[in-house]
């Protein structure tokens, strides 16, 4: 059978499933939306959403790669956005972005230390910090929103941090590409990536080979926090304002992106490019529902259906590929 040639490829590349799903959805969305979905402006919007969700997903993918999980990223995203906006109104946006990233790193550090020092499952720890930092965001904004005055929305730094476009695309997209290249190099071609995947594959074996398992996990949590806060910064830059609920439920989309993209929740197997494709698929679905006039409240329901169907389809595909 000619199809069986594809088996080793699917075994080796868990992200193929999401690329197939993505390709099918692109065709379906293009054919059924009367040009409202597949046009340059709309694709640009999708890519902007993909960029922020994608940055968050990349961070979550790293944590999932170690066999842990971080569901606090939605709140970290919100904290990053608020930190950026609050400071950008007073100092240069580049400094504000650095501060926002530091906030993200600090949240990642808290998560990582709690998980590695106490040995408590990361699911429950980050569920707790998800609520803690959401609560802090709401308390900080006191029901109002933080914003940068229109007069201050100018300058290279502001435009470069999601507040402007370059060659027709929001600058967040270019940040995503830069981060993707750096992380792929780290994961595939540096000792850190080797150890990270080893920890996810078998923490016990990695430990026996002298890998500092806790340090690797801690680094993954910090990177994840940094990326989520940076994504929040770029989103805040685009909108110019943010309230206490910014990024709410994004953690679920980020995890869905990772899993759809071929990251194994048990750890050890992950695909950064797959996680991004997952983020692109979710953003595309969202956009399709908007441009075809489906009410936004249906979004989460349809998203859930797609996640369930795609996860099942992906699993079937992989089981088929594993059969001899």
């Amino acid at each position: 059978m000619t199809l069986s040639i594809a088996k080793p490829l699917i075994r080796r590349h868990a992200e193929l499933g999401i690329f197939l799903i993505g390709a099918v959805l692109i065709v379906v969305f293009t054919l059924t939306s009367d040009g409202k979905w597949a046009n340059f402006y709309n694709i640009g919007t999708i890519l902007q959403v993909t960029a922020t969700l994608g940055l968050m997903s990349l961070g979550v993918a790293l944590v999932i790669g170690t066999g842990e999980i971080d569901i606090s990223v939605g709140s970290t995203f919100g904290m990053g956005a608020l930190a950026y906006l609050w400071l950008a109104a007073h100092v240069d946006p580049s400094l504000a972005a650095v501060a926002a990233i530091a906030v993200g790193a600090a949240i990642g550090l808290v998560n990582g230390l709690l998980v590695t020092r106490t040995g408590t499952p990361s699911l429950i720890i980050t569920l707790g910090t998800l609520m803690i930092f959401r609560g802090i965001s709401i308390a900080l904004t006191e029901g109002f929103s933080f914003s940068v005055p229109y007069a201050a929305r100018k300058g290279w730094a502001y435009f470069g941090l999601g507040g402007g476009e370059f060659l027709g695309f929001n600058t967040a997209l270019y940040w995503l590409i830069i981060v993707l290249v750096i992380l792929m190099a780290m994961l595939k071609a540096m000792p850190f990536g080797n150890r990270l995947l080893a920890v996810g594959g078998s923490a016990e074996s990695a430990h026996s080979r002298g890998v500092r398992v806790d340090r690797i996990k801690l680094s993954a949590f910090v990177l994840c926090g940094v990326l989520a806060a940076f994504a929040g910064t770029l989103e805040a830059g685009k909108l110019g304002f943010a309230d206490g609920s910014m990024g709410r439920l994004m953690e679920l989309q980020a995890i869905a992106s990772c899993v759809l993209g071929g990251c194994l929740l048990a750890g050890g197997r992950m695909s950064l490019i797959g996680a991004l494709m997952g983020a692109f698929v979710l953003s595309s679905v969202q956009s399709y529902l908007v441009v075809t006039g489906v009410r936004p409240q249906w979004f989460i329901l349809i998203l859930g259906l797609i996640v369930v169907i795609a996860a099942y389809g992906d699993r079937s595909l992989r089981q088929w590929a594993l059969r001899k």
Binding site: N194, A198, E204, A206, R209, G210, V211, G268
Partner: peptide, 18 residues
Amino acid sequence: VGLCDNLSIARNFYLGRE
């Protein structure tokens, strides 16, 4: 223990001192 199933032979061989 000592081998991570998800990694290649070369990556396992040098794990921890690449």
